[in-house]
Design a protein around this nucleic acid. Structure first.
Length: 112
DNA sequence: ACTGTGACTTATG
DNA sequence: TCATAAGCCACAG
């Protein structure tokens, strides 16, 4: 887990503001890893607790949760999002909650 | 080297 | 909207 790619993914997810969400593919792109959306899911699973990575702000490109509906993980994600004001309707969030970062500012913060 | 498996995505009907 | 199919890539066995 000392993987540099994982580190970049965690740092990118850390930039998602409260109340906003991003897709796995979007995070992969922003982290400089286009085409590796699946790696993002893997990286989130390995994220160190102390880093406090907001994994629940990441979902599929169609704005639905990646976990199977009703599962413990899905419920935790749903609750965490709700506590930030992001309401899920049929396991989907509204487009208004999508994160649209300022690329110049983001790249500066990530220091790539 | 080969194969199966995902916290995925896009195209198509 | 759904459902299916194919593409995708890292990783484990």
């Amino acid at each position: 887990m000392q993987n540099q790619n994982y580190r970049r993914i965690w740092q990118t997810v850390l930039q998602i503001p409260s109340g906003k969400v991003a897709s796995y593919g979007q995070i992969a792109d922003l982290a400089g890893l286009p085409g590796r959306a699946r790696l993002v899911g893997k990286a989130l699973g390995y994220a160190p607790e102390e880093l406090a990575v907001p994994w629940y702000r990441v979902l599929r490109s169609d704005r639905s949760l990646a976990f199977t509906p009703g599962s413990a993980s899905a419920e935790e994600q749903r609750h965490r999002l709700l506590s930030e004001g992001v309401l899920l309707i049929n396991y989907r969030v509204q487009a208004q909650y999508l994160w649209q970062p300022d690329l110049a500012e983001l790249l500066f913060k990530l220091q790539y």
